[in-house]
Amino acid sequence: MIWLLGLLIGMMLAAAIAVLVLENHIAAVAATSIVSLALSVVFVLLRAPDVAMTEAAVGAGLSSLILALSLRRLGLWQIEGDKHPEIAKEGVDA
C-alpha cells in the first residue's frame, strides 16, 4: 500500500514543480488541479474522508473554476506562450 502513497506524493511534488516551471498559464492551472487531486486521494488513505471531500470539491471544482474564469478575464488564455513576448521569454518561469 505504501507504494501507492509514494506514487501519489511523488506525483504531487512533480506537479507542484510543474506549476512553477510550465510556461502556459492554462497548463499551470491544470497542474494545480492535479496537485489537489493527488492530495485528496492521500487524505482518503490517511483516513480523513471529510477533508478529502472538501479538498476534492474545492480544489478540483471551485478552484479550477475561479482560476479559469480569472484567466479568461485577464486575457491570458493564449495557447502559445504569454501575451507579452518579453514576459513570455523570461518573466513566466519562476
Binding site: T32, V35, V42, F43, V51, L76, G91, A94
Partner: peptide, 20 residues
C-alpha cells in the same frame, strides 16, 4: 516568482502542504 498569477498558484500549493 515574477508573474503575479504564478505567485497566487504557489500560494495555493503552500497552503495544500500546510493542510497535509
Amino acid at each position: 516568482g515574477k508573474h503575479l498569477f504564478r505567485i497566487i498558484l504557489a500560494l495555493a500549493i503552500a497552503e495544500a502542504g500546510a493542510n497535509l
